[in-house]
Lab assay of single mutants.
Amino acid sequence: MAASAHGSVWGPLRLGIPGLCCRRPPLGLYARMRRLPGPEVSGRSVAAASGPGAWGTDHYCLELLRKRDYEGYLCSLLLPAESRSSVFALRAFNVELAQVKDSVSEKTIGLMRMQFWKKTVEDIYCDNPPHQPVAIELWKAVKRHNLTKRWLMKIVDEREKNLDDKAYRNIKELENYAENTQSSLLYLTLEILGIKDLHADHAASHIGKAQGIVTCLRATPYHGSRRKVFLPMDICMLHGVSQEDFLRRNQDKNVRDVIYDIASQAHLHLKHARSFHKTVPVKAFPAFLQTVSLEDFLKKIQRVDFDIFHPSLQQKNTLLPLYLYIQSWRKTY
């Protein structure tokens, strides 16, 4: 089996927390979720979201995140109150960019949308954001926290390059993509939290790379249903696996070995980020709550012996909000 052949990389499970039942964490995340308004986002309300009498641009960002990046939404709820709305805006910006690729039928249209967001970032730093909910909220975040323009532009530029429907040539190319998107998002989150620390940035770099790799793995069944495969070609070739094997949902050992190798790289990034947690300011830990969902996925895929098409991998963990709150309460990542 794939797991038994390579099992030495995987460390002990961390979500089991001995003695936790003896201490009762304060009510927090679930209460916040219940208090949030929840009407559906419609095209009509989106168009009017920044106008008078609408929910408001902040509510639009929150709803977009809740629907399109639920794990990011849950993590954002546990940030300090003064930072929450800015991170909602930042993550909503990322969602807007991420959904361009799947929402257009022609690359030219995707490039036009990316050009809109490039100009939007430029206009935000000229205090002239367009009348668009996410743009307005992002402008507020930039003004409030003096966010670095370079990180925002890196996210747009990398998403634009990724409009080509090509597999990553190697794991390094996937890591570079993750660094310029997910890690950049974390650098900006640290700025919102008021953290300027080399060790925190180092952790953000590795956690962002782990996030990018896990996202690529999780999306494999969806991409396969659209006749697309984006997994690193070098690892596929190493194990003699073709793109057609993934399109046919082949579950042979060599296919699972490909998934094992890729998942192991995410695991190593996560492990390395945690190896120097004592040197990272505690104030930075809330920015890294996504490690909970990353670890949850890596454990699940290990349990199914790296069968990327196993139905259990597509099921939401209903206990994730609780695990996130516990992680926040324990002040760790």
Rank of each mutant, 00 (worst) to 15 (best):
G212V: 02
V282G: 13
A81D: 13
F297G: 02
H269T: 01
C75V: 13
E175S: 04
D305F: 01
Q251A: 15
V229E: 04
A200T: 07
D296Y: 07
N176R: 13
T57I: 10
L322Y: 10
Q211G: 13
N162H: 13
R226I: 13
G194M: 03
V214S: 06
L78Q: 04
E96I: 09
N250C: 12
E82R: 15
Q115I: 05
A98T: 09
H206I: 02
L298M: 07
I326F: 15
Q314S: 10
E122Y: 08
A48V: 09
T215Y: 11
M153Q: 14
M114D: 03
H59R: 10
D58W: 07
Q265I: 10
P133S: 08
Y60P: 05
S85I: 09
M112G: 14
A49L: 15
I259P: 01
I235Y: 08
I136V: 15
L294T: 12
F276A: 06
F288P: 01
W117S: 01
M112E: 11
E179L: 03
I308D: 02
Y168M: 07
M114T: 14
W151C: 06
L289F: 09
Y323S: 14
S85R: 10
E160H: 15
E160Q: 10
F285G: 07
K107E: 10
W151V: 08
D201S: 05
W151P: 03
M114C: 10
Q251N: 15
L289N: 06
T148E: 07
H131C: 12
L298D: 00
C126M: 15
L188H: 01
I308W: 02
V142T: 10
K67C: 10
H206W: 03
D252A: 11
K118V: 03
A81K: 15
S183Q: 00
C216M: 15
A263F: 04
Y333G: 01
A266R: 00
E244W: 04
H206A: 05
H272I: 11
I262F: 05
A263N: 01
L324V: 08
H269A: 02
L319K: 12
F93H: 01
K316T: 15
V104K: 07
W55V: 13
I109V: 12
K316F: 09
P232M: 00
E137H: 06
M153W: 11
R218Q: 10
M112S: 14
V87A: 15
L231C: 04
L188P: 02
H202A: 06
D261G: 08
R91N: 09
S76V: 07
A178Q: 00
Q182K: 06
H145F: 15
N162P: 03
R330H: 07
K172M: 10
D157E: 13
I308P: 11
D123T: 06
V255Y: 09
S242I: 03
V142H: 07
K283E: 15
R159S: 05
P221E: 08
I259V: 14
H202T: 05
E63V: 06
N176P: 00
G240P: 01
N146I: 05
L65A: 09
L322C: 10
L298P: 00
A47P: 04
A210R: 03
N176A: 15
G212N: 02
H202K: 05
W151L: 07
A210T: 08
L294Q: 11
R218I: 04
D305V: 00
R91G: 07
S264Y: 06
D201G: 04
A284E: 00
V87Q: 08
L77K: 03
F288T: 02
L319E: 03
F285I: 09
R113C: 06
E191C: 03
P311K: 10
P232K: 01
C236A: 07
K172F: 09
G72E: 06
R84F: 04
Y222A: 15
K299A: 14
N128V: 15
I136L: 15
K300V: 06
L298E: 02
Y60D: 07
P80T: 08
H223D: 15
L185M: 12
K149W: 04
R218K: 15
I308F: 00
R274I: 02
D252G: 14
D257F: 05
L231I: 14
Y333N: 00
A89G: 07
H59E: 11
L193T: 03
L298W: 05
T332G: 11
E295C: 10
A49N: 11
L270P: 00
G224A: 15
E179V: 02
V87R: 00
I308L: 13
C216A: 12
I259F: 03
G212D: 03
D261S: 08
T332R: 13
S83W: 13
E122F: 06
V156D: 05
Y177E: 06
V156W: 04
N254D: 15
L190Q: 02
V280K: 00
K154A: 06
D102A: 09
H277C: 11
E137D: 07
D257Q: 04
L324S: 05
R226W: 10
K67Y: 11
K166W: 11
N250Q: 13
L324K: 03
V142S: 04
H131K: 14
V304G: 03
T291S: 07
F88L: 12
A92H: 03
V304C: 11
L198F: 06
A47I: 08
